[in-house]
Design a binder for these strands. Sequence first.
DNA 1: CCAATATCGGACATGTATGTCCACAATTCA
DNA 2: TGAATTGTGGACATACATGTCCGATATTGG
Lengths: 167, 167
Amino acid sequence: MISQTVEYALRAIVTIAQHEGEPCTAKKIAEITQVPLPYLSKLMQGLVRGQLVNSQRGLHGGFVLTKSPKEITILDVIDVIEPFKRILTCPLGIESHGTTLCPLHRRLDKAMEATETILRATTLAEMLAQPGSVTPLCEEKKLVTLGLGRRSKKVEPWGTRTPSVLF
Amino acid sequence: MISQTVEYALRAIVTIAQHEGEPCTAKKIAEITQVPLPYLSKLMQGLVRGQLVNSQRGLHGGFVLTKSPKEITILDVIDVIEPFKRILTCPLGIESHGTTLCPLHRRLDKAMEATETILRATTLAEMLAQPGSVTPLCEEKKLVTLGLGRRSKKVEPWGTRTPSVLF
DNA sequence: CCAATATCGGACATGTATGTCCACAATTCA
DNA sequence: TGAATTGTGGACATACATGTCCGATATTGG
């Protein structure tokens, strides 16, 4: 239905939307969304090329949305990663009936149309945490510093393996 | 959205439904549906195990529906080949909010629900050729006998490469 | 300029869906 | 009983989605 890659992309862009104002690094997004960092990096390039996010290299860099969350729909994200393909012509290459589909593919396309309509109608803004909502917000991992000076290391505190709860 | 395998399975079962009464051989189905014969054979085993069709080996064998086309829906076929999976729990393994999904996955599941509803509501019977329908019926290839006696061979007549037009 | 932080881009590795092949078993008909 | 027909099941081959790695490039701050 929805590929793993698209699922990842949606998690990522929602996370970025949750942090409007400050750039999100790939590393941070990967932790929150539970997506493998190397794969996420590849993904993000797609979102950048698709003009949904801007990237900034270097210290304090990361990714930010190019538009308001109100102006980005789920379908926008899908179309940038792997375009939503409706059934427009006969999959068997039969040209005898122009744009008219057989009953089977007409039905299948109707089902796709229903999905497409819902996805086009849903913006990122609608999926952000609402003040009165029951849904928990995204909890970022609180890192604890171990050691001192150059050798210090940030790690997850013991007992906080609960993943973030945006999703 | 819908895997190639499911697409093939649907073509096949619609073809069988179109020929109620007589068994369809895999070879015949493969020709009509434009599905590679070896792959189709594998597929059919799934439909048999899923109790949607019965198989009969030997001369005059083939596949027939186990029930009336009115009692088989598109969703039935999908569920037998690769079950339609709704989003029931958080894909990130977060258990803190029971069965409640985050806004993102709630929306995605709504889209799937819409699709599922349509597919469950569509039976094979609705997709067969209607008397008054504009949609062309399935044209099977008319084979021509070349040669005589034991050496005769059935082949497609020249100039009839037009694929069948059920779909 | 140097070191640290981050993204970029291409090459490579793995896994799953798709597609192929072949020997075998069941059925029919003569 | 023998030959032709037709589905069955397992092993194998290929294509594409998914996932990994690493050097290059850009940016910041000292």
